[in-house]
């Protein structure tokens, strides 16, 4: 009798150890960043869940005809944006209405999309999966397709302790992977950590940046996540009214979420419709047309000399984070997607 009890208790203890804290993994929390806003308490991170999210992110099984993965529009070597396409390309080469944003530091972002249509990272993945011009699928069907694959049942088992696959679990796995995409190891960051210093040109650029840009592209995330207009003219074909489409408030017309400038060297083309291919064109815009929009801020063209523009550019390049771009933890999970199925 006594022996049995001990075995029983021992077994309980072992399972407790096995399930508690196994492979728990927090995100990188840089000291010079504020507290992240993602609701970690509802989605505890683990190595296995993050891996599941990563596999899903690269797997075209998510689209109706199994051709398009998240990574088609969010490529890791371009800070997870869609390289070379002004407007993102989805299923059957359909063109979307907007440029895909670079994905990074999402755990700090309070809402998502250029117009803030999505209020929580967990819900973000539903949009591309179901959008007719992106992946054209239904979440119900994605869950069915995943259930049929033993390899996925195994991954869900590892990530959640049992192999049942639900919409909630799917969405939370995506978030687990996406919040890992922390970019905080650029030259700028090492200057903030006092392990490096700016070259004099970069320093001059940094000062110009603080004068002209930091009010919106606020350090250290290089956005304050507000909706603003930087004076882009309305594209007569797309007729994108921005935030007002969601808030239904005319005052929000032509306002867009201020994007981060981290890794800006790699996340071309620029702006919500990808109208600028080069950073130089962006600076030209701020130099001449900034603040000319009917709505939004009361800014004026910044009118920098060409030397100053070069300085500002030198600073913007210190926001490139190669350790982030080439991080193998975020890369295509070859071992699973090639063999797993």
């Amino acid at each position: 009798m006594k022996k049995k009890q001990i075995i029983f208790l021992g077994f309980l203890g072992l399972t407790a150890i096995a399930f508690k804290g196994k492979g728990e993994k927090d995100i990188e929390r840089p000291k010079h960043f504020p507290e992240p806003t993602y609701s970690f308490q509802n989605n505890p991170m683990s190595v296995d869940k993050i891996y599941l999210g990563r596999v899903l992110f690269y797997d075209p099984i998510l689209s109706r005809n199994n051709t398009i993965a998240c990574s088609n529009c969010h490529s890791p070597y371009n800070a997870f944006t869609h390289v070379d396409h002004a407007l993102s390309h989805g299923i059957e080469d359909r063109e979307g209405k907007r440029n895909s944003p670079a994905l990074m530091n999402l755990a700090w972002q309070p809402y998502f999309m250029w117009d803030g249509a999505i209020n929580h990272l967990d819900m973000q993945s539903l949009f591309p999966i179901t959008h007719p011009d992106e992946m054209g699928e239904t979440i119900e069907n994605v869950v069915m397709k995943l259930k049929e694959k033993r390899a996925y049942r195994n991954l869900f088992l590892k990530a959640y302790g049992d192999s049942s696959i639900t919409g909630e679990r799917l969405l939370k796995a995506f978030s687990s992977f996406m919040v890992q995409l922390v970019s905080a190891n650029s030259k700028y960051d090492s200057v903030m950590r006092k392990t490096s210093i700016f070259a004099s040109q970069e320093k001059r650029g940094y000062d110009l940046f603080k004068t002209h840009c930091n009010a919106c592209h606020t350090e250290p995330l290089f956005t304050n996540y507000r909706f603003e207009s930087n004076g882009l003219s309305l594209d007569p074909v797309l007729k994108d009214i921005g935030r007002a489409g969601i808030s239904q408030n005319p005052k929000d017309s032509f306002l867009f979420k201020i994007p981060t400038l981290r890794n800006i060297e790699f996340s071309y083309p620029y702006m919500h419709d990808g109208r600028f291919k080069k950073l130089k064109e962006v600076l030209n815009h701020y130099n001449k047309d900034f603040g000319k929009g009917k709505y939004g801020s009361v800014n004026k063209p910044i009118q920098l000399s060409s030397e100053e523009q070069v300085d500002l550019m030198a600073f913007l390049l210190t926001l490139s984070d190669r350790a982030f771009l080439f991080n193998q933890d975020y890369a295509y999970p070859r071992e699973f997607l090639k063999e797993g199925k």
Binding site: M123, L126, I139, V143, E168, L171
Partner: peptide, 12 residues
Amino acid sequence: VSGAMGGDLDPT
């Protein structure tokens, strides 16, 4: 506004 939920609130 609380992210993904399960049970009857599951997005599927």
